[in-house]
Amino acid sequence: MQIVHDIDRPPRQSAASRSRPARRWDPKTAVEAYGMLAPSIIGFAVFLVVPILVVVALSFFDWNFLSDPEFTGLENYRELAGDERALQSIGNTFYYVLLNIPAQTVLALLLALALNAKIKARGAFRVIYVLPWMAMPVALGVIWRWLFDPMNGGLNRFLELFGIDGAAWLTDTNWAMPVIASVNIWQYTGYTMLFFLAGLQAIPGQLYEAANVDGASKAHQFFRITLPLLRPAMLFVLITSVIGSFQVFDTIHVMTAGGPDGATATLNYQIYLESFTQRNAGYASMLAVLLFAIIAAITLAQVLFFRKRTVYDFS
């Protein structure tokens, strides 16, 4: 039977773990353990921790790559208030995330439900939906750019068959961002679906059997059994895909390069433009710190939101 408890409380300990002897400090084992850990710790420090600290430090400097960085204190942070392009890019980022996450999550969930049912060629469908995620985003971006080309592109030629005049998708300030978002939804929905699929398969079948016996409708079963029990999968999916969409870069770079008129320049893209086309490495570092703060705040909010909820343990 199911046991309900709060995640804040430690889970019920099994007999095996309780009877395990207390650990003792053993210098020989410690050396061995740290020796084994060293490659990953060093890699983590050199390629992640140090660069992050350097970026934070650089955000207080002016640096054009060519001559020595010059300390300017909080100047970069103060400049942000008057930088229309940077502020626009923050707005663009949230717009993109809002276009991307709800659609991608709902679609992935629906797909997972469909492919969890006993249908023919289920395995083949699962592979097909994951394929876009396996392909290279830059190559996909190039192909999608061709498809969206207003003159020679496949999409507008197809629409023409029905007498519809397709838009100039990627050069129209209103269309460009939804188009970018839809390409990324297409690309990542299959991948997201995998986590929901795994979550669905972890739900014990007897719950549905019992619900059927009690005469619960399918909709009722979905909202009362499936959705609550998918919460761990949902938490993981939302955290990773929200972080991922705040960091979108390659699709934008290849399809619009931040245009038209800055309409698809997200904060992450603005960091690239500031550093690598304008040579404002210090200012770009400030934007990177800002992006980090935004993502950290949103991730924290998500974790807090989900932690308050009940989880179920069937062990």
Binding site: F47, L48, V50, P51, I52, V54, V55, L58, P137, N184, Y188, S241, I243, G244, S245, Q247, V248, F249, D250, N268, I271, Y272, S275, F276, A281, A284, S285, A288, L291
Partner: peptide, 10 residues
Amino acid sequence: MNKTRSAALA
């Protein structure tokens, strides 16, 4: 999804 360019910069 993507690595941020700031990592490369750093």
